[in-house]
């Protein structure tokens, strides 16, 4: 089993319920192929950096999972068939350093999933003012 991460962008024209449903379908593709989902992280509706299929916005979700390397091609094939999916990015976490980073990310995602209902702390976290100015002067 190897650790992976998938970022999926779902079409913004769907209603909120339809988005949740299509996300479920996406996660089912992973689980039905023997993947184990460790955590999911909703990044929510965001503006895309460039239009994809004439869409300016998209609903982002990050799925952390572990699966057999041979399964990934099948998962990606299924993703391509899904028309509600605008874009997906699969990242492999292979080396020791990357695996520790993956564990950290999973922990963070889990915390974020539990936190927002209790308090709105993550919102503060996401807007740090420590934006270092570019080096070029």
């Amino acid at each position: 089993m190897r650790n992976y991460e998938n970022l999926v962008i779902v079409r913004p024209t769907l209603t909120a319920e339809e988005i949740q449903e299509s996300l479920k379908v996406i996660q089912e593709v992973i689980t039905s192929n023997g993947g184990e989902i460790a955590a999911t992280d909703d990044m929510g509706m965001r503006k895309l950096a460039y239009p994809i299929d004439k869409n300016e916005r998209g609903f982002f979700q990050v799925i952390y999972y572990s699966a057999e390397p041979s399964v990934i091609t099948e998962i990606e094939r299924k993703f391509r068939l899904n028309e509600e999916l605008l874009r997906f990015v699969t990242i492999k976490y292979d080396t020791n350093r990357e695996i520790t980073a993956w564990n950290e990310l999973v922990k963070k995602a889990k915390k974020k999933a539990e936190a927002p209902k209790a308090e709105t702390a993550p919102v503060v976290e996401e807007a740090p003012k420590a934006k270092t100015a570019p080096v070029a002067e």
Binding site: L7, I91, A101, L105, P134
Partner: peptide, 22 residues
């Protein structure tokens, strides 16, 4: 040790204003 690609604010440092890699 590891940079997360989802952290766009952190990436700004290495991008020019036209979003080229510095």
């Amino acid at each position: 040790d590891f940079i997360d690609y989802k952290d766009v604010a952190g990436l700004r440092f290495s991008l020019s204003e036209r979003y080229k890699i510095m």
